[in-house]
């Protein structure tokens, strides 16, 4: 009996020693896993963006893109985020929506910019989406809802256009898990405070348009797909209250006014 137990212990030890030993090898590097993942993300991001551009024209007007770029750059610099990695796309649409796509792409619909009352509200939404990108929520959500094999097949051209529409729908009109949304909100407040932007307007933006209104208006996608706006506004205010700073606008009032004017 003693001999059998000893052999069993040796067998278990052999298993764990082998596993531990093999874990020391950087398989991710050796098998180019990260490279392949980033390639898949890049391809997927391009395909989804093409799909978006089919439904709405991209706004390349410098009077629109430059102020938004200034906002994004200010947020990125203050938070040590590589600005060059994030691609910003403004889509002409009445829809009040913004979302993150694979390959660090940030899509904002002009409807959302018009719905915000000031640049701090818009910055809040931008920070929320950057947080999804930085926390790697985008690919995780897609893998969870669509499956990695399907995602890979889309990038190799073995899928129909219906699938791409579904992927786009998943990213643009379905909220992330409650916990992920909360993580993104808290991180967004962090980004705003570091960028000297008041986070309270972001909470006000969530609270201002009640869910009833978003249910009536089909264009208010961002709010209707992000449930519990009231609860989110509460914890954003609570979290922001702990770190009060002297906030300064990134854009001049005139630039902000011009931006909204251009989009009307």
């Amino acid at each position: 009996m003693k001999n059998i137990l000893l052999q069993l212990v040796l067998l278990v030890l052999l298993f764990f020693a082998l596993w531990l030993g093999l874990s020391k090898i950087d398989w991710m590097e050796l098998l180019n896993v990260n490279y392949l993942t980033s390639k898949t993300q890049q391809k997927l991001g391009e395909l989804i963006l093409d799909q978006i551009k089919n439904s709405g024209e991209e706004n390349h007007d410098l009077k629109v893109t430059l102020p938004l770029d200034s906002l994004l750059t200010a947020i990125c610099i203050s938070n040590a985020i590589d600005r060059s990695q994030i691609q910003l796309h403004v889509i002409k649409s009445e829809e009040v929506n913004a979302f993150a796509l694979p390959n660090h792409q940030l899509v904002i619909y002009s409807g959302l910019i018009l719905e915000t009352r000031n640049q701090a509200e818009l910055s809040g939404v931008i920070c929320h989406e950057i947080a999804h990108i930085e926390l790697d929520h985008v690919m995780n959500k897609l893998i969870k809802e669509v499956g990695i094999s399907v995602l890979i097949s889309t990038t190799t051209g073995n899928s129909g256009s219906n699938l791409m529409v579904n992927i786009l729908k998943t990213l643009s009109s379905t909220a992330y898990d409650r916990d992920l949304e909360r993580d993104a909100d808290i991180r967004a407040v962090d980004y705003l405070i570091r960028a000297n932007i008041d986070p309270i307007p972001f909470a006000r933006f969530l609270r201002r348009i009640p869910e009833s209104k978003s249910a009536i208006d089909p264009h208010l996608t961002w709010l209707s797909t992000h449930p519990d706006a009231e609860e989110r506004a509460d914890y954003i205010i609570e979290f922001a209250g702990e770190a009060y700073g002297e906030y300064q606008p990134v854009l001049s009032p005139e630039t902000w006014k011009n931006l909204q004017h251009q989009l009307k």
Binding site: S23, I25, V33, N140, L142, I143, K144, G147, I148
Partner: peptide, 9 residues
């Protein structure tokens, strides 16, 4: 495969 865990060494 379903994104609950990350691919790791």
């Amino acid at each position: 495969l379903f994104g609950l865990e990350n691919l790791s060494n």
